[in-house]
């Protein structure tokens, strides 16, 4: 406790009080105008450090979502192509059954063969489906069409796989191995779809009893086998689409919680800060008023 109060002390402490009220107000003002409680890392060092990690995580979730949407679109294209192949194969199966009932003339068989050959081209066209300029069934050779139109049935892609990253260490494949279904054609004699289709067309054109017999049993059997391969490919595409959809809903949840966490750390509580601001304004005005009246007073006013 000081026993003697001098003019300098009064001036000094009044000035210090006004100054500190102003500093406090300036800080609150910045909080109000930016809406953030962390304007500089020193406001909350641990929070600032966490905010960096959370901001990055949030941006990463956005990336996952973009990849997921892209992956879904890719898989939709794949699903469309496989559905097209499926329809073509169903039609071929009908034609083979129709050809096998023994009442067809050779002319009928020839025209059925033409339709089968046409459907073979449709299958190959579906296999050449592109998404955003990339061949989706070429493995990682996305710049090359997997099958050429015409007689050459060899597969020009590779067995590489392309994935979309839809979560931390969650990569979902968007490619399916189309050559496990279509194969390399008649020359390879691999029993795959293109081999089967070419064999069917050949047998139709031959029209011999042996060829008709082969159509009814062996070729129809091979077609069934190919169709089950096609089913499993479509199932794979469907499963991958589902996996991405699940990932997207997880991303949404994570984004909600991360946004909440980030907001808790760095956003200002506007109601509270506004209240503080009015308090500080009142304190500042009081300090000014007190200063104005105290600093003027002295004995000088009363001596004559």
């Amino acid at each position: 406790m000081t026993t003697r109060v001098t003019n300098d002390m009064v001036m000094g402490s009044t000035l210090a009080d006004i100054n500190s009220a102003q500093v406090q107000m300036e800080r609150t003002e910045r909080e109000l105008s930016s809406g953030k409680s962390i304007i500089e890392p020193s406001d909350n060092p641990q929070g600032a450090s966490q905010a960096i990690a959370l901001e990055s995580a949030l941006s990463g979730l956005g990336d996952y979502e973009t990849s997921a949407n892209d992956g879904t679109a890719w898989l939709d294209a794949a699903n469309g192509a496989l559905t097209g192949i499926n329809e073509a194969v169903q039609r071929v199966r009908e034609l083979v059954v129709q050809a096998g009932n023994g009442t067809n003339s050779q002319g009928n068989l020839e025209s059925i063969a033409s339709e089968v050959e046409q459907l073979t081209q449709v299958v190959k066209q579906d296999a050449d489906t592109q998404y955003a300029g990339q061949y989706i069934f070429s493995g990682t050779q996305t710049g090359t069409a997997p099958y050429q139109q015409g007689a050459n049935d060899s597969y020009s892609g590779n067995n590489g796989s392309i994935a979309r990253s839809v979560g931390p260490s969650t990569n979902v494949a968007v490619t399916v191995s189309i050559n496990s279904l279509l194969g390399e054609g008649k020359a390879a004699n691999d029993g795959k779809l293109l081999d089967t289709l070419r064999t069917i067309a050949t047998n139709l054109r031959e029209g011999t009893p042996a060829a008709r017999e082969a159509l009814n049993s062996k070729d129809l059997g091979a077609l069934e086998t190919n169709m089950s391969t096609l089913d499993s490919l479509q199932a794979t595409v469907g499963a991958n689409t589902d996996q991405i959809a699940a990932a997207v809903s997880r991303i949404e949840d994570l984004r909600d919680t991360t946004t909440t966490q980030l907001s808790d750390i760095q956003d200002a509580n506007i109601a509270q800060v506004s209240l503080e601001y009015s308090n500080e304004q009142a304190a500042y005005t009081a300090a000014l008023r007190a200063g104005a009246s105290i600093v003027q007073e002295s004995l000088l006013e009363f001596l004559h």
Binding site: S49, S56, G60, G143, S165, N171
Partner: peptide, 29 residues
């Protein structure tokens, strides 16, 4: 047309470099 390298590099997000940086921000703060 593969992308596994790009995916692997994008997955470095939140890794050691970022953690070290977040630490130095906590330190200076």
């Amino acid at each position: 047309g593969g992308n596994e390298v790009a995916i692997a590099i994008a997955a470095l997000r939140g890794g050691a470099a970022e953690q070290k940086y977040a630490d130095v921000i906590a330190q200076v703060g």
